[in-house]
């Protein structure tokens, strides 16, 4: 249970306000959101693991540079793999894969956790933070695609009778600002829930 915090209570995006940058732009549809979530999880977990393994050898003076080097290497590897095996999605993600480097979650976890913990807890911490971040992306992506285009994962899910009854896709959902408003609402819900638990 100790490690589950980042999924909800300490969610990096919703509570710690880390790493909102860049990534919300890929949530207009579910598929790129999921791929982005997985990429961030992989980078976050592996960089945590590597830095944790190297932690006693890294000279403190240059640790930020070493961290940047490790993270950007991992990001490039992920990017290359996406281009080779998930070409369609990699086109949708375009520069946002590269921007994982400056995602504050990753650098933040390296500084706050991996530098002072062993490899296994670091790995788990990385996975959990990546997933907590991914969860937000996926929830936002689901809402935006479902209400914006009436599809999920590109399959139409809303029955035709809806449209015949006068239902219209909400084009507003697809526009970038809606992602922010959705995240704001998620924070609202989470905060309300937290208070009632207490």
């Amino acid at each position: 249970m100790k490690y589950l915090g980042p999924l909800a209570k300490d969610n990096p995006v919703l509570v710690q306000v880390l790493g909102v940058c860049s990534a919300l732009a890929v949530t207009a549809q579910l598929k790129p959101a999921v791929v982005m979530a997985l990429s961030v999880t992989v980078v976050c977990a592996l960089s945590n693991l590597i830095i944790s393994l190297m932690r006693s050898t890294i000279p403190p003076r240059i640790r930020i540079i070493v961290q940047l080097l490790v993270v950007s290497t991992l990001v490039i590897v992920v990017d290359q793999f996406l281009q080779a095996y998930l070409y369609e999605v990699s086109k949708m993600l375009s520069v946002f894969v590269g921007l994982i480097i400056t995602n504050c979650i990753i650098m933040g976890r390296l500084e706050a956790f991996a530098l002072s913990h062993g490899p296994l807890p670091s790995l788990i911490d990385g996975v959990m933070n990546g997933l907590g971040y991914g969860l937000v992306l996926v929830v936002v992506g689901t809402f935006r695609e479902l209400f914006g285009t009436g599809t999920l994962w590109n399959f139409p899910v809303l029955p035709h009778s809806f449209y015949e009854a006068g239902y219209m896709n909400n084009g507003l959902m697809i526009l970038p600002p809606m992602a922010l408003i959705l995240v704001g609402s998620l924070i609202w819900i989470l905060n309300s829930a937290k208070k009632s638990v207490k």
């Binding site: 000279p59 240059i62 070493v66 080097l69 290497t73 590897v77 290359q80 793999f81 281009q83 080779a84």
Partner: peptide, 25 residues
Amino acid sequence: VYVSVLVLVVAVLLTAVSLGLKPRQ
């Protein structure tokens, strides 16, 4: 020495990945 070794490792790794995946891309 630490930085030099690190940069070397990274460069070799990236080149290998890039060359290996290029045909597929």
